[in-house]
Design a protein around this nucleic acid. Structure first.
Lengths: 324, 324
DNA sequence: CTGAAAGCGCTTACAG
DNA sequence: CTGAAAGCGCTTACAG
């Protein structure tokens, strides 16, 4: 049996499709009698309007694409949940574009989303060489990433986060804290803040960068090798996963945490906090970032002329655990 | 500037829209000259076919809905990643339906997906009272859940998982191991296997069920209270999150793990394994489950008459860590 | 080898 | 208050 269409509803109710459509959309004046007849027909047939046809007419798909490195990562999984929730509240559906950590997929998705006429895109990846966002000509919002002059970026206060983490390690007694991050590029405000505070305290900053395009196993190996060959008494990791790798290394090699080695992570996702509540970390306001991204995107989707001023960074906070 | 349509391409190439369409779809005989002219026009205009219009004609949206409790959870985040990857490989896009752990959203999504004419649905939630799947009349595959007679279920070998975990605890010396799970219903094969093995060893099985509809904080509180009032020397938790809650409780209360208390988790997601590599756990083949679910769904989407035999459970394995 | 026409399932002015 | 007709952006028989 084929899915009923509006025509079937109209036939059953003894009206024209135009009238049936009006009842469905509650548009114009309808007699109570007709209204009832159409509603009955809808119920009896289990009719559900074809949203694809509606999209074609309305020039609006009510679809938003979310591009992330991968939702297998706790931070992005949590971000995705909250973006989805905020979008659903406003009547948008979300196409999940999981890049599996590869730039090629991101490029493909950018294309695919445009072909599918999504109303907007939220992107939260770190592939520096993906062009195409500027050309895209549809509302886009970036999360923690600079995508182009016309594209607003939602981010939290990375500078303050870096300050909090570094000052905390120093206050706890670390003299040789290192910063472990994916890439140590000029725009990395957490690393910049770390360096600034170390120097202010007349301590020598050291940054270990493991690179974006390595697997979790490779990252772990690189960090363990580095830590083994570079004695230190504090670690400020740019994400919680990395911090936990350091914590595990400390356990395996008999370092006492926090006495010998103090560890501070970054992100503060609920999943990792639940897994290891004792980890000291800088908490990003993930839900707020998601909500704000959706808010800004929706504004641009409903009003193409909406301004693109850059947003103020959202607040971060240090969460104290036993690791430092 | 409006997005170019096929009409614009045709005009620019000096052909009819029908011909332009044929070039795009590489259908029928085209002269090289025309082919080239259309391709040039496409490139110059940056034309991208409107997939919504194509869907309407083709009666196929190339869209699949994935319904999960929430991707903020490590297990479901990893499942979502792999489902998405497998679908993308076969040319399907994925609508993420994150229920935020509430049955009402699941019901709504089921409706929404049908309205959006998805070609199929993969569902992996645990809300027992959601009806509507049987009525849905489109290909559906369930993961680790019984949704109806006509709906195939993909699952891993819960019985063997329960056996492995229980036998391991006993072999390590636990005499009073408890099983901690969300709900202890009759279909819970992990709990059944636990009971069976405990009894076989003449030990007394004890199951603590914290319930599905509690927050993480509430779950933690419930478990801590229970453990405090019910001495035991082993814990078989039905998921890694719960196992890690127990591990944290042991640390806080000074229990030595594994000497005083042995802990075994369940699921084995990469995210939690990376966070706490030392956790002993029963690993579900998450990627394989995702791949199989997509495979079965695609079979049913391309052939409505495809059989719905129940699948054999996929293999699980015990991963040894220092917690037991 | 190419074009005119019908149609996918709806909505929306426009008449009446 | 209701219906006939056009149209959203494409594809696909059907002619020629």
């Amino acid at each position: 049996m084929n899915r009923p269409k509006l025509q079937d509803v109209a036939a059953r109710a003894g009206v024209s499709v135009a009238t049936a459509s009006r009842v469905l959309n509650n548009r114009g004046y309808l007699s109570d009698d007709i209204r009832r007849r159409v509603e009955n027909a809808v119920a009896e047939l289990g009719y559900r309007p074809n949203e694809i046809a509606r999209s074609l007419i309305g020039q609006r798909s009510a679809l938003v694409g979310l591009i992330v490195p991968t939702v297998a990562d706790a931070f992005f999984g949590e971000l995705a949940t909250h973006v989805e929730g905020a979008l659903a509240t406003r009547g948008y559906k979300m196409l999940l574009c999981d890049c599996h950590n590869t730039p090629e997929r991101e490029e493909r998705y950018l294309d695919l989303l445009q072909g599918n006429r999504v109303d907007g895109i939220i992107s939260s990846t770190h592939n520096r060489d993906v062009t195409g966002y500027e050309r895209a000509d549809l509302p886009i919002v970036a999360i923690d990433r600079r995508l182009g002059a016309q594209i607003p970026t939602i981010r939290s206060d990375n500078r303050t986060g870096g300050l909090l983490a570094t000052e905390h390690l120093i206050a706890r007694g670390s003299r040789s804290a290192v910063h472990v991050t994916a890439t140590d590029h000029p725009g990395n405000e957490r690393a910049a803040a770390y360096r600034e505070r170390m120097i202010a305290h007349r301590l020598e900053p050291r940054v270990m960068a493991y690179g974006f395009d390595v697997s979790l196993d490779e990252r772990r190996a690189a960090i363990e090798t580095w830590l083994t060959t570079h004695p230190c008494d504090g670690i400020f990791a740019s994400d919680d996963v990395t911090a936990l790798m350091a914590l595990d290394w400390a356990r395996k090699t008999g370092r006492r945490v926090p006495d010998d080695l103090r560890i501070v992570g970054y992100d503060g996702s609920a999943a990792l906090h639940t897994a290891v509540p004792g980890l000291t970390t800088v908490r990003q306001p993930i839900e707020l970032m998601a909500a704000r991204a959706v808010e800004v995107l929706v504004a641009r989707m409903s009003d193409a002329a909406a301004s693109v001023e850059q947003e103020d960074p959202l607040p971060v906070a240090l969460r104290h655990g036993w690791t430092s």
